[in-house]
Simulated assay, not measured.
Amino acid sequence: MKTIIVCTDFSEEAENAVHYAASMAKENTYKIILFNLQTVSIHALNAQASADFFYTQTLKNQKKLEDKAMELKRLYSIEAGYHLASGNFIEELENCIQVKGCGFLVMGMAEKTLEQKLLGNHVTRVIHRIKKPILIVPSHIEYTGIRKILFAYDTHRSMTWSAMNDIYYFINEFNAEIEVFNVSESLEDFTEVIHDVGLNSGYDLDDIKYSFKMIQSIEVIKAIEEEIKLTSPDLLTMVPYKYNLIESLFHRSKTAIMAYRNKVPLLSIPLNID
């Protein structure tokens, strides 16, 4: 049984992601682990709250997670558990992945705010630092199945076998069709796209419903958004590229941008390159 970790802080967008994941779990017999990082308010820190206070807060958070897991079991007839942590978000999430095992993660995404634009948030950090597929669910989306996947592919980035294998897993798990969509300043890279999609994945392309579409444009994000409007996919898939320090001064992650602006769930597949 595959285990999926769902990050929650009990906000509206997180609650939506939890129920989205639970619907997926029911359809595919997944086990859900609710991950919560408890935080302490600045007021409690300034007041130098006692150890008893922190212990009481931990018990409250634990009870809240336990009740939510029981609710999911009752509503969706699935296996559900929880993992309560405190400390550094990325480090504790990596620990949860190791302890519980994880096929992929699910996170909710709220509407873009000025604070997110300036500082980023947990979602963008997870995209670039966690080496597991991450499903990012907009706050207004309910699960209705995954039948059509739009894979926005960048020919200028190295594709790995593991990344391609993760994509094929979702295609087969949900019996979905996939459109490989590439935006390029030149249309001379078509053979490179074909080569990478068949990248020794172990899957037979003859068993998959797929199509290719390439357009010429310098406005990549706009082109992807237009293709989403045109084809109405259930899932957008992207493979984020990790820029080095110099590159990061001139480039913004297209995957992170789409996570903020996306109107459909986004599956971010890690390259898994150290």
Rank of each mutant, 00 (worst) to 15 (best):
V18D: 06
I42Y: 04
T39C: 00
E79Q: 08
A14H: 03
E12Q: 05
Q57W: 08
T56E: 08
E66L: 03
E13S: 13
L37T: 04
A47G: 00
M70L: 11
Y30E: 01
H43W: 04
S41V: 11
I32N: 09
N16P: 03
F53W: 06
N28S: 10
S77F: 01
S50P: 09
F53N: 06
Y55T: 10
Y76F: 15
S23D: 13
E79H: 03
S50R: 06
A44R: 09
T56M: 04
T58H: 14
A44V: 04
N61R: 05
H43K: 08
L65K: 11
T39P: 00
L65P: 10
E15C: 03
T39S: 05
L65A: 11
S23M: 13
A51N: 07
A14Q: 07
I78W: 05
A22C: 10
E71K: 13
A69V: 12
A47E: 04
I33C: 11
K73E: 14
L75A: 12
F10K: 02
M24D: 14
T56N: 08
E13T: 14
V40C: 12
A25W: 14
R74K: 13
M70C: 03
Y20K: 10
M70G: 00
F53Q: 03
F54I: 08
Y55L: 04
L34S: 08
